[in-house]
């Protein structure tokens, strides 16, 4: 059995690489989109505001698989043809935009009104207040939920199997359909998803744990003062 596993690994690892690549590309596309949609649904004038809110609801309401099919099979009917890999990145990027927009909205809302008032009494402009005061504080608030989304997204890249992106899931499937080692192949793939997820979480906890202990010592200093 060990041998069969070892035989699979070289075939699966490039698939894992592609899963990670799709994750990163979807984030690169989706996070800026999420910020723009959040700003639009909070601050824009009526028509744009409702457009943004509508797009967010749409993006969250449509299942990821349908999004993938729409981009990969639907767009060509409108003359936009693309390979499976960029199609997966775009579809999951759009989904990321919609989901993270909600996260960013919550982040902006969590910055106290007093911060806007302080900016206002110092006669800072809207964009300067947003860029210099509000955004830096909102970003800190949204990091943990964004990590959560990233993990979901990484696992959702397995959907791209449906449009034959050669990511981890389709490698496992193809391998199994040739060797009939279904249980072993999917177990190994599952462990690979799990391992990356746990590694990511561990790195995140380490980073935020350090920050938290700094905050604790700060509180201790204050209490002692």
């Amino acid at each position: 059995m060990i041998e069969s596993i070892l035989a699979m690994v070289p075939d699966f690892l490039p698939g894992l690489g592609i899963s990670l690549l799709v994750t990163v590309a979807s984030l690169a596309l989706g996070l800026p989109l999420g910020i723009l949609l959040a700003l639009g649904s909070l601050f824009a004038g009526k028509p744009l505001k409702f457009t943004c809110i509508g797009l967010v609801e749409l993006g969250r309401g449509v299942p990821g698989l349908i999004m993938l099919y729409l981009v990969y099979f639907g767009l060509p009917q409108m003359g936009v043809v693309m390979d499976a890999l960029p199609a997966a990145m775009i579809a999951l990027g759009l989904m990321t935009g919609a989901y993270t927009a909600e996260i960013f909205v919550a982040g902006f809302r969590a910055v106290p009104q007093g911060q806007w008032e302080a900016c206002g009494t110092l006669a800072l402009s809207y964009w300067k207040s947003l860029r210099l005061v509000i955004l830096p504080q909102a970003i800190k608030i949204v990091v943990p939920p964004l990590i959560g989304w990233t993990i979901m997204l990484f696992q959702a890249t397995s959907l791209a199997y449906a449009i034959s992106v050669p990511e981890l899931m389709s490698r496992a499937y193809n391998y199994a359909s040739v060797t009939f080692e279904y249980a072993l192949a999917f177990t190994l793939a599952g462990f690979m998803y799990l391992a990356v997820t746990l590694l990511g979480l561990w790195l995140f906890r380490r980073a935020s744990g350090r920050r938290r202990s700094a905050a604790t010592s700060r509180a201790a200093v204050l209490a002692g003062a």
Binding site: Q113, W116, E117, C119, G120, L124, Y126, S129
Partner: peptide, 9 residues
């Protein structure tokens, strides 16, 4: 008047 925000428009 009109939009009342903390920020001067």
């Amino acid at each position: 008047s009109g939009s009342r925000g903390a920020i001067a428009r």
